[in-house]
Each structure stands twice: as C-alpha cells, then as structure tokens.
Design a protein around this nucleic acid. Structure first.
Lengths: 242, 242
DNA sequence: CGCCTCTTTGATAAAAGTCAATCAGGGTGG
DNA sequence: CCACCCTGATTGACTTTTATCAAAGAGGCG
C-alpha cells in the first residue's frame, strides 16, 4: 500500500512546487529554497486507509504532504485510539517521533496521498550549508505545538457545538490557503473520525451537523459541506479558532 | 516580579547542575554538556503568581526550569483561558512561540521559581561548534508535541475519573524522576487549575479527590496528596498514562 | 480574631453518551 | 441492469456524566 518514488531532476522539486509558500519552505528566501531541492530525494504514495508510519516504527524522516490528506492518531495498549490531527497538503507530519527516533503515533491516509520524504540525517547534513534550515524545522515544530495546544483548548474549554464550529472554520481556512473554496468542500473523514478528534460521539457530531443546517449556518449532505453563514459559525464557536 | 541574574563562572552551570540528565542536556555526551555552559548566561527569578512571559511578548529565548514550577496557558480574545501544561524543574518552557518569535501563551509561576535563559540566537551561534545542540532542541520540541498529544488523548478519550487518575500518576512519575517521593507530594496548583487543565470544573475535581480517598486509592488533605494504591489508580486510569 | 480564599459537599439541571431503529448510497454479484 | 448488502449517517428515546448553583467549612495571614 506504500510506493516509494525517486525524485528525478525533472520531477517537481521544492523550488517549483505549488506548495512552496506553505510547506517546509515557508518564509524562506528564494535562493535558499533552491538549495532545498537537494533534500527531497524521494516521495511516497500511500493508498487510502493504509499507514505512512505506525507506532513503534523507527523515525528516519518527517514528511511534507504533497497531495491527499492523512490523520495522525495515538493508540494506547488497550487499543483505545485518539486522533490528534487531520493533515492537508503543505503540512508536515511525523514530528512527534523525533524524541528518540521512534514513532509514537500512526499516520493513516484518508484518501490516496503522496508525501515528500524529508530525511532527518540529510536535513542535518544540508544544514551545514543552509543554516536557516534548522530554524525552519524549529518553526514548523513550534507550529505543531501551538496547533496541538489549540486542540487542547478546544477539547478542554469548548462545548460540543463550539468545537464543531471551530473545526469547520479551521478546515475552511486551511483549504482556502490551498486555493480551494472556503465555503464548499468535501470532508475526507467520517463522522466517527470527526467525533473522535473532537472528543464527541459520532451521533453528537451528526446531530450537530443537522442542527447547524436547520439553523441555516451550513448545508450538508453526507460529506459535502457548504458554509452558508461564516459569521454565524464564528459567533457560535465563540473563539478566534485555531 | 522578575529578577534577572547573571550566571558567573562560579555559579552552577549545566555541567554541574543536578538536573543535568533531565533538562536540556538530556542524553548528551559529557564533553558536549561542558560546552553547553557557554549558552546559559542568565537566569530569571519569578515570584509566585507572576509571568515569565505573556501572550504577544517577543520570543527571545526558551527557558529551562531550575526550581519551582509554572503553568502555561492559552488565552483567547474573550479572555477564556486553557491551561496547557504544568512544568517542573528540568522541563523546558516557551517552545511554542518559535513560529514567528512571538509568544502565543502565558507562563505563570505557581510558586517562586527560577529558570535558565536559553537564548535562541546564542543557541544558533553555539550550534556551529556543537551541532548536536540543534538535535537536542529538536528532541525536546518533539517531546513537547507528544506531551500535548497525550493531553489531547486524555481530554478526548478519558472520563473525568480517568483524567484525574492519569494526572496524578503522571505527576508522581515526574516528581519521582526529580528524586522526590512518588507517593507523597504537595500540589502546587489549585483545584480550579487542575480542573481547567483537565477540562473539568473545580467541583468535579474536588469530588473526585474525595471519592478516590473514600475508595482508599489516595489520602488527600487540601493540597497534600498521598498515593496509597498506585496499582488501583493505574487500573482506574485505564491507560499507560502519558 | 476575623476576613478572605480555597475547598468540600449537596441538590438540581444541562449536556452529551448510549442503545436502537431506520435511512441513504455505493459497490457487487446474480 | 437491477436487487441486495454493507457501511456510514441520521434520528429518536432514554441514561449517565458532568456542570451549575448554593451553602457551609477550613486554613492562612494580617
């Protein structure tokens, strides 16, 4: 279910990638981004439902998502699962796991996806000639810490309707950054996955979708969502929505 | 309420610090730790209740806690607060905030505390001569990501009693690492702060303490906690407790 | 000693979960 | 090609958990 692909000189590289401004190169100088091309030597295709990495696997790399979407989830010894993130193109996955180079979570594709392999050893190597690269990874890790803290805030301080509203707004914003419509999108995850992520049951999520629709905030049909009243959603969420 | 202290040659340094094995130097070679001494030029004393940094402050450093304890909390525009961590000696604080060098949380001392200042610019500087240092920070940031994910799991997947049990076990383990008793300790935070952290109300926390005591799992008197039945607590928590 | 803050405990209400039935689509095989 | 089946989604009735409101108790500090 995984297929490794070599990146040849004529493949798309960081310097020519559309996700340039969002992904690893976020905020880097043009010239430096060109040097990044040396870093990405391989990509991996992952089929829907299969794992990019799993709990206990050695961490040799982190991954920039090129297309598709994935979820990350913790799994404890009793098999209990908690989804900790839904990741979209341009986002980096696998940065937990760098404590002692062992993955502590699973990363599973929500649809057929492709990721760029950022090998840690090569990152350290390249950093000698491109010192800004270490700072870059640091910024991305810091972002992941903040993101996770936001999720903690959502789970700890918001009520179910606020969580779902904040979730939709957050998705909308991220899709918008990628150039997609902020008001119409297809959810790649099930009600159960949304519920797990937000600390709710799938029934509660389903009921909330119906209620939001009844109140004219959204239109929803299965996994297709239209946001009709972004202002209303924001108001409902009661936060600035991380 | 903050007092900056220069670290003189005869002060305690990383190489002679008791927290050597836990803090920034975690897992580093002896020789490398000696080089770390150049990095820490300043410490800060923070009085109980006052802030080490606040939302919006520029991030010039991260901080290793030398003594005392702090909490970190997010605060949204409506003033709603969510505590995202209680930090003990040897732990690093301030690693969110490295995305664009602005703090996105508050760090407040739970008791009079002292932290070592790890300036980011000096860290980058020293890294030229001590490449392992970047990896070190990376590991600590990865650890913070995992820690936060564990908290997400606690908030999203556990019931109130499991959360509090897991919280006590986690505290016990960390205090034990510091050489304190794993079974007797003083909580530095109020019921309200514990509740906020765990996504519960202070009343629920108080009731749970009473219930655990009634069931013989702990003895508790105000902020003094004795763990009587660690096995029972573990069983109750239903997890491997991050 | 008395005030103030934190904690405990109780009664009640609200939120979200559980159990159960039905519905809708998509894919498969006859 | 269509019926059927399987999975995921919706909706309802009821239960459990946790929050809210309220009052009283315990320490600590001036």
């Amino acid at each position: 279910m995984q297929k490794r692909i070599s990146v040849t000189p004529d493949s798309t590289r960081c310097s020519t990638c559309m996700l340039n401004e969002i992904c690893l190169p976020l905020g880097m100088q043009r010239g430096d981004v060109n040097k990044l091309d040396e870093l990405i030597k391989e990509r991996i295709r992952i089929a829907k439902g299969s794992a990019l990495f799993q709990l206990g696997d050695p961490t040799e790399a982190v991954y920039g998502i090129r297309s598709g979407s994935l979820k990350t989830q913790l799994e404890d010894s009793s098999g209990q699962v908690q989804i900790t993130g839904f990741l979209l193109p341009g986002e980096i996955i696998g940065m937990d796991g760098l404590l002692d180079n062992t993955h502590v979570s699973n990363a599973i594709a929500l649809e057929d996806s492709e990721v760029c392999v950022i090998r840690i050893d090569e990152l350290d190597e390249l950093s000698h000639h491109l010192p800004v690269l270490q700072q870059q990874l640091r910024r991305l890790m810091s972002k992941e810490i903040s993101r996770s803290h936001q999720l903690v805030m959502s789970l700890g301080a918001l009520r179910s309707e606020q969580r779902l509203a904040a979730f939709l707004i957050n998705l909308s914003q991220r899709l918008s950054t990628l150039g997609y419509s902020p008001s119409e999108f297809i959810l790649r995850m099930s009600r159960e996955e949304i519920g797990n992520y937000l600390g709710l049951t799938l029934e509660t999520v389903s009921r909330l979708f119906s209620r939001f629709a009844r109140e004219g905030l959204i239109r929803v049909h299965q996994r297709e969502v239209h946001i009709l009243d972004m202002g209303g959603l924001r108001l409902l969420s009661g936060t600035d929505c991380g």
